[in-house]
Nucleic acid binder design. Structure first.
Length: 282
DNA sequence: ACCCAGGGTAACT
DNA sequence: AGTTACCATGGG
C-alpha cells in the first residue's frame, strides 16, 4: 500500500490556542534532520528549532531524555507533525538492516538520528526546483524571499505561498527572488499545476516510476529533483536522488551497484550517504 | 579571476 | 544514446 500521511487542512496559526506535544523518539537528532538539506525553513536559537511547514508553525526542542517537545502548535495538527517527523517508522530497525553493508554501517554510525521528513508536496516541489545547481545557503535565501514576497504574513513569520497564490506567476514577477534561470522553471510549474497537466494530489497513489515521469513534465524537473520530491514529500523510500555527492559515492564505494540491504529504502540510505560523503569530502 | 553548488536543457555528435 | 556548453547567482 502506498503511504499517505494524515494531512489536515492548511490552517493559520492562532496565538490564543497554542499547545505543547511531547513525544518519545530515542536517538532523534533534530539538527541533523532539519539542516541536512531536505528542508530549508527551520532556524535554531538556543537549542529551540523554529519552523513553518504546510502552513503550520512549530517550535521543537530536545528534553535530553529521549523525548522531544513541540510547542506552540495546534491540537489538531498533531497528526501532521507525527507524519512530518516520520515518527511511526522505526529507524533503529532500518539502521540495523543497513549495517550489513560496511560503508552504510559507518555512514549510519557517524550520522545518528537523521530521519527523512514527510513534507507538503507543493512546497517541496518548488524548493527543489530552486535547489538545482545551487548551494544550501542560497537556496534558503531564495525561499525566504519567496515567502516574504508571496506568502501570508503571520505572527510567527511568512507562510510558504500556496499553490493558488502562485497560479499565473511569471518569471519576471519572480525576479526579486534572484533565483536566476530557475525562475522560468517555477513559472512553468505553476502553469502545469494550474492546468492540472500535473496533479500533485494524485501522486500519492502512483508508483515511483509513474509519479517521477509526471513530475518530469515540468521544465527544470529532471530525475534528481523529481526523486527529492518523491522522497521528501511522498515518502517514496525507493526514490534515490542522485546529486553530485551521491554520484561520487556510487563511483568510489559502489562501482558494482548499491547493496542489497537498502533495497526499498534507497532514499533513506541516501540521506546517510549524503552526509557521509560531505563530511569525508569524497 | 576561477571554481563550485542537493541539475536540467538544448544542441550537438 | 551518450557527451557538452550554457544557464544566474553568490560564496570561497
Amino acid at each position: 500500500m502506498p503511504y499517505k500521511p494524515v494531512l489536515t487542512g492548511i490552517r493559520r496559526y492562532e496565538t490564543d490556542d497554542d499547545m505543547e506535544y511531547t513525544f518519545e523518539c530515542r536517538g532523534f537528532d533534530p539538527h541533523r534532520t532539519l539542516f541536512c538539506g531536505q528542508a530549508f525553513r527551520w532556524r535554531e536559537t538556543d537549542g529551540v528549532y523554529c519552523g513553518i511547514s504546510g502552513g503550520r508553525y512549530a517550535e521543537l526542542f530536545d528534553n535530553g531524555d529521549g523525548t522531544f517537545t513541540l510547542r506552540n502548535i495546534e491540537k489538531e495538527d498533531i497528526p501532521y507533525w507525527r507524519s512530518y517527523f516520520d515518527l511511526d517508522t522505526d529507524y533503529d530497525e532500518l539502521v540495523k538492516r543497513f549495517s550489513s553493508d560496511s560503508h552504510m554501517r559507518v555512514a549510519c554510525s557517524e550520522n545518528p538520528g537523521i530521519r527523512v521528513l514527510i513534507q507538503e508536496p507543493f512546497e517541496t516541489l518548488i524548493s527543489f526546483i530552486i535547489s538545482q545547481n545551487n548551494n544550501i545557503k542560497r537556496i534558503t535565501g531564495i525561499i525566504d524571499r519567496l515567502c516574504e514576497q508571496f506568502g501570508e504574513k503571520t505572527d510567527n513569520g511568512f507562510l510558504f505561498p500556496t499553490e493558488k497564490q502562485l497560479y499565473g506567476i511569471t518569471a519576471e514577477e519572480l525576479a526579486p527572488l534572484r533565483a536566476g534561470f530557475r525562475a522560468k522553471y517555477i513559472a512553468d510549474a505553476m502553469e502545469k499545476l494550474k492546468s492540472r497537466e500535473v496533479d500533485l494530489d494524485s501522486l500519492y497513489e502512483k508508483d515511483t516510476c509513474t509519479a517521477r515521469e509526471e513530475l518530469k513534465k515540468i521544465k527544470g524537473v529532471g530525475d534528481k529533483v523529481a526523486d527529492c520530491v518523491l522522497l521528501f514529500a511522498y515518502h517514496k523510500t525507493d526514490a534515490f536522488p542522485r546529486d553530485v555527492w551521491i554520484k561520487r559515492v556510487e563511483q568510489k564505494l559502489y562501482p558494482d551497484g548499491l547493496p542489497e540491504c537498502i533495497k526499498g529504502n534507497e532514499g533513506i540510505a541516501q540521506q546517510f550517504l549524503f552526509d557521509y560523503a560531505r563530511t569525508h569530502n569524497i
